[in-house]
Simulated scan of single mutants.
Amino acid sequence: MSAPAPSSGPPTLELRAVEVSHGRRRVLHALSLDVRPGELLVVVGPSGSGKTTMLRAAAGLEPVDSGRVLLDGDDITDLAPGQRDLAMVFADLALLPHLDVAANIGFGELARGARRRQVRARVKEVAADFGIADLLGRRVTRLSGGEQQRVALARAALRRPSAYLLDEPLSHLDPVLREEARSQVQVLRSRDGAPVVLVTHDPHEALSMGDRVAVLREGRIVQVGTPEEVYATPADTFVARFVGPLPMNLLSRDDGHVGIRPEHVRLGDDLDARVQRVEHAGTEAVVHTTTERGPVVLRLPWGERPRVGDDVRLGWSPAHLHAFDRDGRRLAR
């Protein structure tokens, strides 16, 4: 089952200048964002950046101070959560421990008044899609973390909403199960083409899963683009350091900083450095050095690694350099 191509048409779900406060603390600052039909939009940011609050505001679980929430062009800002055609998967999955898998999947639809016979048939269908048809009679407390996550996604899919909201759905899984679960998120949007908004604190998840990536910092969207755009042309030094397998190196200069990714640094003749630490990374070594312009990290083949304490010279191609001003904003080449 292949994922549908994102549409360039009008957005399915749109947040327009949404502001949310918790007491006197502003959590979201005039946040504007949209997700298009068939799209998987990943919102990535550190803990406390407002990711969950943003989803809860879209779902109607969090009151907004100002701004609007639109679904298929209709203003749903003042609608109750149950009146919004959205399905949310919570970080803790919110499964009912006293019920079996089938009852968990069908619970919401039955509560909304759907006929039991119809729900039972649809539960079997969606369970097959998510590979849990043989678990329908089992208590959710007897499932693995990955199986529980499939149940939560199946429950959301049963509703056939206009859009899905996923709050860090992979964060509680170990690395092996996390890889498997990513494919289940693709199953979710492949069933009916509804777009998915997924939030995570993991930049690797964002780059590997999203059709587009939105970077959130302190309640503000600082950049939106394809994974390639966000990684190759970060809007500021925060994005440059936060998004990627390793933070971008930032070298000080009079008018700001020059940035370069670790994979673009080599042993060369541009800058003197001393090796402080060498980390094993499979076939590569991650080499940490100190220089007069700040710390520099580079990736080298394991067999070409220097030793701790070695004095080396580093180099790079000018084409791989990024320029940022004193405030951290990206400068045009």
Rank of each mutant, 00 (worst) to 15 (best):
residue 96 L to T: 11
residue 24 R to G: 14
residue 53 T to F: 02
residue 36 R to I: 04
residue 58 A to K: 04
residue 46 P to F: 08
residue 95 L to D: 08
residue 99 L to C: 06
residue 43 V to W: 09
residue 38 G to H: 04
residue 90 F to P: 02
residue 52 T to R: 03
residue 59 A to M: 00
residue 91 A to V: 11
residue 80 A to H: 15
residue 53 T to E: 00
residue 87 A to H: 08
residue 96 L to A: 13
residue 22 H to C: 00
residue 79 L to F: 12
residue 24 R to E: 14
residue 72 D to F: 04
residue 78 D to A: 14
residue 74 D to R: 15
residue 35 V to H: 08
residue 95 L to S: 11
residue 30 A to R: 13
residue 60 G to W: 04
residue 83 Q to N: 13
residue 50 G to A: 04
residue 51 K to F: 00
residue 69 V to H: 03
residue 77 T to Y: 15
residue 23 G to E: 13
residue 57 A to Y: 12
residue 88 M to F: 11
residue 54 M to Q: 00
residue 90 F to K: 06
residue 59 A to V: 04
residue 43 V to N: 03
residue 101 V to G: 05
residue 51 K to N: 09
residue 43 V to D: 02
residue 67 G to D: 13
residue 38 G to I: 05
residue 46 P to I: 01
residue 97 P to S: 06
residue 58 A to M: 14
residue 70 L to K: 02
residue 67 G to H: 11
residue 86 L to D: 00
residue 83 Q to G: 14
residue 100 D to S: 09
residue 84 R to K: 13
residue 34 D to C: 08
residue 49 S to Y: 02
residue 73 G to M: 12
residue 90 F to Y: 12
residue 24 R to T: 09
residue 66 S to C: 09
residue 99 L to P: 05
residue 95 L to F: 11
residue 83 Q to T: 12
residue 51 K to R: 03
residue 28 L to E: 05
residue 68 R to D: 10
residue 58 A to R: 02
residue 63 P to C: 05
residue 67 G to A: 15
residue 45 G to S: 09
residue 87 A to R: 04
residue 51 K to P: 01
residue 33 L to F: 08
residue 66 S to G: 15
residue 101 V to F: 02
residue 58 A to Y: 02
residue 85 D to P: 02
